[in-house]
Nucleic acid binder design. Structure first.
Lengths: 192, 192
DNA sequence: GTCTATAGCGCGATAGAC
DNA sequence: GTCTATCGCGCTATAGAC
């Protein structure tokens, strides 16, 4: 296990804070204390808060896209793929993660307080994920594993909104258990 | 049209700001400028920010509950009732509302930065609305207007999460049009 | 109930020593 | 790359005149 460099530690801590408190609820002070360095040192790595946010959103989107694509590339059943996709969100509610939302779901709520490049990143994440969900649903429809009313794109939008909204709501009450039952219900809807 | 008193103006302006920017993205300065009085005068009506937030959440929850109950009390079809419920959220995206989220959806994202009584209010709003959605779905199931897999409670949670999440996402891209097509997809899912 | 004025704090950000 | 020190600003909140 090689030691994590400071820049990565900052990103890790900042992401955790934003997923729990929001970008407007997190400060350089919070980061510095969690990492164990001084505020000024955080500015060395990310001069402006917008620099930090952009780096975070890019890292998060890239990682997420890679994981999702690896799920899509397997030869597992459409249902298993969809379940594994949903599991990416569910992981944020596990006991060790302390009720986090999706980074882009959280920042999306604060969208009107962000500059344009950041807003575009969030927007791209949404479109990206809806497109990949559409592919999953379409594949399942073609194999006959899924059967549902309406177009795959429209259902993908509903599923994506359910996952993002469900995470935010499950943090308030119900937790991981409620979120899991929501995923089960989504699976029922997709299989008709 | 009798003139609105200052306290009500403050609540109206603050609610609008929070639905667009979040509770952490709004300040007493923003309110005072929008109302046309000084910051100190806002503190006269709501000494602490938590006082203002609590008053806002209570007013919002009460109004919302009243409207929903009036929808439930009509003798319209289950589908019409559900559509009118969804319309309450859709109204936030109309051209005159400038892309607002649900007040409780927005504040729910910032839940971890709030004190406990406020968090409980948000939580109660969620439970309240899921319960009423459950009633709508159950009624439709009994009349035969709705046909869906799973329990009404589980589907209600999915519908509620879709609406809350869908609002946040539609603000980022797609707008009212995308949200409307999401509602249509929800209706298809509910009718089987 | 509104105002001016200000306290007190935390924020993002920068300068400059080591 | 980290530190100390500090700047300037915006925030919540309060005191006291009108």
């Amino acid at each position: 296990m090689k030691p994590t460099d400071t820049k990565t530690q900052i990103l890790d801590v900042a992401q955790d804070l934003i997923q729990r408190l929001g970008a407007n609820g997190m400060s350089y002070k919070d980061i510095s204390e969690a990492v164990g360095i001084r505020k000024a040192s955080v500015h060395t790595h990310f001069p402006k808060k917008d620099d930090l946010l952009m780096a975070l959103l890019e890292r998060y989107s890239d990682r997420f896209r890679r994981v999702v694509d690896s799920i899509l590339a397997t030869d597992e059943s459409p249902e298993t793929k969809l379940r594994r996709y949903c599991g990416l969100y569910e992981a944020n509610l596990s006991s060790s993660s302390q009720d986090k939302a999706c980074l882009c779901g959280m920042v999306g709520a604060e969208l009107a307080t962000l500059n344009q490049p950041l807003a575009e990143q969030v927007c791209a994440f949404y479109q990206d994920n809806e497109a990949r969900l559409t592919m999953m649903l379409l594949e399942g429809q073609q194999t006959g594993d899924f059967r549902f009313a309406g177009e795959p794109e429209a259902l993908a939008a509903v599923v994506f909104a359910s996952l993002q909204g469900g995470l935010l709501i499950a943090r308030a009450y119900g937790g991981a258990q409620k979120f899991q039952s929501e995923i089960e219900q989504l699976m029922r809807l997709v299989k008709n």
